[in-house]
């Protein structure tokens, strides 16, 4: 079996929960945008080129208000600022991936970040191809979902209420899996506590303040540990 094929079959099962989650969300997005009077071409191209779910929904609103590309640019940076933190975490993982790196960065989303970061890739599988397939499969699911919703939205009125829990379940299981495998629970606990506190204070826009606080908290923790180790020595 050649290396691409091997990497594809190793990557595929990790993306199956995302297949269900993204098809569902993509269909909702495609259907939403065409129901506002846009041609299906819009959600299809936007799902492929923007590929950031919440920003795509927001862009529908931008396209229906007055023309202001500078504001659209700044809004996109604000809404997607969490990618900056994913990038910092993935610097080492994406090192030595050659030209594939451009696509890995282009197609980075919450779910691809979590899988590429946490999965222990078997040693007989090519790491960069594995990460490319995880990224590309998720990208494909989202685009196919958006296209289905845009073109055939009316046929998907089956009862999917509650299905949105699937992405929450994915993150819960990955967090649990890390918790069971790591002995140091301080990063996970600080992440959880800071997120909940920031959610209570900032409401819907809690992600960026929470991430900034996490960076500060974790850096201070490192300083504290260094000082303590030096004191012991």
């Amino acid at each position: 079996m050649n290396i691409q094929k091997k990497a594809f079959y190793t990557a595929l099962p990790h993306t199956l929960p995302i297949l269900a989650g993204f098809l569902f969300l993509g269909i909702s997005y495609g259907f939403f945008m065409t129901s506002k009077g846009f041609s299906p071409v819009y959600p299809i191209f936007m799902s492929i080129l923007i590929y950031a779910g919440s920003m795509e929904f927001i862009t529908v609103g931008l396209l229906m208000s007055s023309f202001n590309p500078a504001a659209a640019f700044l809004l996109a940076i604000t809404v997607n600022a969490r990618h900056l933190f994913y990038g910092i975490s993935l610097l080492d993982k994406y090192k030595n991936t050659g030209k594939k790196k451009l696509y890995l960065i282009f197609g980075m989303c919450d779910e691809s970040f979590v899988i590429n970061y946490t999965v222990k890739i078997p040693s007989d599988t090519d790491k960069s191809w594995f990460m490319v397939f995880v990224t590309a499969l998720n990208h494909l699911y989202w685009a196919v979902g958006a296209a289905l919703g845009a073109i055939r939205g009316k046929y998907f009125q089956i009862n999917t209420q509650g299905l949105d829990f699937i992405l929450a379940a994915l993150f819960i299981v990955i967090m649990l899996e890390q918790w069971l495998n790591q002995s140091d629970h301080v990063p996970a606990m600080s992440g959880l506590i800071i997120s909940i506190i920031c959610l209570l204070i900032f409401g819907d826009n809690f992600i960026i303040p929470a991430m900034i606080l996490m960076v500060f908290a974790l850096l201070m923790l490192k300083k504290y540990n260094e000082v303590r180790t030096n004191a012991v020595n």
């Binding site: 975490s89 919450d110 992405l167 993150f171 967090m175 959880l192 996490m214 974790l218």
Partner: peptide, 13 residues
């Protein structure tokens, strides 16, 4: 950071 971020994604979703 990723461990903390995954906890954040749980809260967010």
């Amino acid at each position: 950071l990723p461990t903390a971020i995954i906890a954040l994604l749980v809260v967010y979703s």
